[in-house]
Amino acid sequence: MATSNPVLRFLESRKNLTGCACGIVGLALAFTGAAGSLWPLVVAGLYAAGALIAPPERPPAPAFPDAAERLDALRADFARLREYLGEVELPAAAAGRLAELDELVEALLAPGWVSDPEQLHVLARAVRQDVLEAVDTFVRTRWWDRVVPGSEPPERHLERQLTALHEEAAALAAALQDAEAIRQQTHTRYLEERGRS
């Protein structure tokens, strides 16, 4: 375990430990008489050589969350998004499209389906950014539409955005379904070939 004290950090370092091991070899040579009267130089030289050949210290690699941890965090964010959406008043068509999207995202976030980082990124972007921005922008634009009427209704944009997000999530679900079908077919072939041999 790394310490903050520089002296202790040096004492625990690979260079010092390797140098000490080589220095002990030098002491063994001195006690056997092989180093002669220059034994202090032999011990110091072997220590220095050991310290030089030792591999450099490497900082510990950062521990990033794995796919399961990221999925758990995404589920928590999805629950918070649902709370927010429950408080927003939406037109019937947009609310229906949002309900379909919500159902599809919930199914994709179920354990055991999405583990690929790219697929997880698509879901995270939809949950943490796209849906929130679409609904929040609708709420703000709707207020301005009441003050300055005559522009294109914000409901239309919201429905189009939710439709695009639903299509993206549906494509992800279709890719997962295809992957599972291929996996099933591969397993069937494997079992059939194993039965023949």
Rank of each mutant, 00 (worst) to 15 (best):
T3E: 10
N5V: 11
P6T: 12
L8G: 05
L8D: 07
L8Q: 08
L11S: 05
E12G: 04
S13C: 08
S13T: 10
K15P: 00
N16A: 15
T18Q: 03
A21G: 10
A21K: 02
A21D: 05
C22F: 15
G23D: 07
G23C: 06
I24T: 11
V25T: 04
L27E: 10
A28I: 13
A34W: 14
S37C: 01
P40E: 05
L41D: 03
L41V: 07
A51V: 04
I53E: 09
A54Q: 02
E57W: 06
R58E: 15
P60I: 02
D66K: 04
A68Q: 13
E69R: 12
R70N: 11
R70Y: 00
L71Y: 02
A79V: 10
R80Y: 09
E83M: 11
G86F: 11
V88M: 15
E89K: 08
L90D: 03
A93L: 14
A95P: 00
A95S: 12
L98C: 05
L101E: 00
L104D: 04
A107C: 03
L109I: 03
L109T: 01
P111F: 00
P111T: 01
P111K: 06
D116C: 01
A124P: 00
R128H: 07
E133Y: 09
A134C: 07
A134W: 06
D136E: 13
T137E: 09
T137Q: 02
F138K: 01
T141Y: 07
T141H: 08
R146W: 11
V147E: 02
V148W: 14
